[in-house]
């Protein structure tokens, strides 16, 4: 029982961070219909920003979110403005290859600057825990990052639902052409959406930095995960991505124990295919033609 509870709790907490990555991707896909293969690499850039803030300026990783978020927003906006914008009307495989190419550029530039060494951020709380009882413990940094994730998601949800810009983004996601006819500056929305998506990925990078490690190729692990989460939740759905993230976190954690560590990613991919086949709109998505 203790093993089950331990797995469940750490699954949920890790899932929170996955959710943030998924939400970023889902926003980008929702607004632009571009599958961003560089999403993990954007997260990686966020991790290195956090690392720089920690080692050079001595800023705590959780506090550094305040710097990482706006910087990554600008970075994402720049990527969209200069590169992605040019292929919005292009065929899907060109969009994919473009983002793959951008990802390669990011990871290899970072490699030239920082070398390919693994970097760790060791804080005073890196391996501290809260004992819950029954032999179950909760990692303090994971818990903090989960709480921050929840807060960010709530704010984002409010932003999309209640503000003018948020509504314009949603309108663009629903029907780009109609939105344009309604006088929405679609180009600007795209830049904002890509900026936000990147900022969220960068923030996720910052949040896992204290409990994970940083290296130039770290993105690949997360890119695939982000796809699975996004599809699971329904492409374009923020709440769906949140649920999808937690679901994937828990699935990984439980199947590592009850099936095997080696097969846990297979379980995730099979789940992914099943959702694609039987509910292609995802758990929270509205069915689309």
């Amino acid at each position: 029982m203790a093993v089950f509870m331990q797995s469940l709790i750490s699954g949920i907490l890790i899932g929170g961070v996955y959710a943030l990555i998924g939400i970023g991707l889902t926003l980008i896909f929702g607004v632009m219909r571009v599958i961003n293969f560089a999403h993990g690499d954007i997260l990686m850039v966020g991790m290195y920003l956090t690392y720089l803030a920690f080692t050079v300026l001595g800023i705590d990783p959780f506090v550094s979110v305040l710097i990482t978020f706006p910087l990554m927003f600008l970075f994402g906006g720049f990527l969209q403005r200069v590169f992605i914008n040019r292929v919005l009307k292009a065929v899907a495989q060109n969009q994919i290859l473009l983002t793959i190419g951008l990802g390669l550029i990011m990871s290899n530039t970072v490699m030239l600057i920082f070398t390919s060494d693994y970097k760790l951020i060791t804080t005073s709380y890196s391996s501290s825990t809260l004992k819950v009882g029954g032999g179950v413990s909760v990692s303090t940094p994971l818990l903090i990052s989960f709480l921050i994730t929840t807060a960010i998601t709530a704010v984002l949800y409010w932003f999309l639902l209640k503000t003018d810009t948020g509504q314009a983004i949603r309108a663009t996601a629903q029907d780009r052409d109609a939105a344009q006819l309604m006088g929405i500056n679609v180009k600007r929305m795209s830049i904002i959406a890509f900026g936000l998506g990147s900022a969220l990925a960068g923030t996720a990078g910052a949040l896992i930095s204290p409990t994970y490690y940083i290296f130039p190729q770290v993105g690949a692990v997360f890119t695939l995960k982000a796809f699975v989460i996004t599809v699971l939740g329904g492409m374009g759905s923020v709440v769906g991505a949140m649920l999808g993230g937690i679901l994937i976190g828990v699935t990984e954690s439980l199947s590592a124990v009850y099936i095997s560590s080696g097969w846990k990613d297979v379980v995730v991919f099979v789940l992914f295919l099943l959702v694609l086949l039987f509910k292609p709109s995802g758990l929270m998505g509205k069915s689309r033609t």
């Binding site: 590169f83 292929v87 290859l97 473009l98 190419g101 990802g103 390669l104 550029i105 290899n108």
Partner: peptide
């Protein structure tokens, strides 16, 4: 290599 890919696509 990455730069080449981006240039060709664009």
């Amino acid at each position: 290599y990455g730069i080449l890919v981006v240039l060709v696509i664009l």
